[in-house]
Simulated scan of single mutants.
Amino acid sequence: MKTLVICSGGLDSVSLAHVIAATGNLSRLVSFDYGQRHRKEIDSAAATATRLGVPHHVIDLRPVGAVLTGSALTDAIDVPDGHYAEDTMRVTVVPNRNAIMLTVGFGLAAAQGDQAVAAAVHGGDHFIYPDCRPAFTDAFQVMQNAALDGYADIRLLTPFVHQTKADIVRAGAAHGTPFQDTWSCYKGGALHCGRCGTCVERREAFHLAGIPDPTAYADPDYWQAAVARKAGA
């Protein structure tokens, strides 16, 4: 089943690309530039496409991102430090981001003759991001069945939707994902900051998976305090 992977260049989506590639079904990677401050993640996605030998499509959504105001990922708002399970992380929501990206992905898949679109949404995202939850992905499949009725039959694959970030690290490691070549940090600096929600979750996931983390963090120890704070909440 020829599969298009929505690939940001982060740990989750690059791991997913390697998992799909191992089946021999990976057709292409699609990334989106929506004006995110951590746009350097797209470079990681491009390197992944080259490594796996598939086309890489970068869709310019900067005009769309410019009107989806109020997010720390696109506006001049500080990205908060801490764990994803803290209410402060809600400021990183970009309204309808996954719905928009998946809609474009399904259109591209239909035009290119692919049979599936894969996205790396996972259980750790459910608290903050409504468009990463099973209720959303199930409803999106129904909507696309209607949108493409009689034209194309495309499945939405979300193999991580009920899994943890640690599960993804294990799956990525099992399929040779070069984690050091992925980018997660929302602050977009020279190094992963080690303090924002995605850095804390990334560092914690390697710890829980029992797999060495090759990532260089500006603050490599902050995650422990963030996890302890979450546990005591």
Rank of each mutant, 00 (worst) to 15 (best):
M1A: 15
S8Q: 05
S8F: 02
D12R: 01
D12F: 04
S13Q: 04
S15M: 05
L16G: 03
R28Q: 14
F32Q: 03
R37D: 10
K40R: 11
S44C: 12
A46T: 14
R51P: 00
R51G: 02
L52Y: 01
P55V: 09
I59K: 04
V64Q: 07
A66W: 08
A66L: 10
T69M: 10
T74I: 15
P80M: 15
D81A: 15
H83Y: 08
H83M: 08
E86D: 14
R90T: 14
V93N: 09
N98G: 14
N98D: 11
N98P: 08
A110F: 00
A116F: 06
V117L: 04
V121N: 09
H126K: 01
H126V: 01
D138L: 12
F140N: 01
V142M: 10
A146T: 13
G150F: 08
L156T: 01
T158K: 00
Q163F: 12
T164C: 05
D167K: 00
I168L: 08
I168Y: 05
R170W: 03
G172Y: 03
H175G: 06
T177F: 05
T177I: 01
T177H: 02
T182Y: 06
C185S: 13
Y186L: 07
L191C: 06
L191V: 06
R195N: 06
C196Y: 04
G197R: 01
C199H: 00
A205E: 02
F206I: 04
P212M: 09
P212W: 08
Y217C: 13
Q224F: 05
A225F: 02
V227F: 01
A228R: 11
G232H: 13
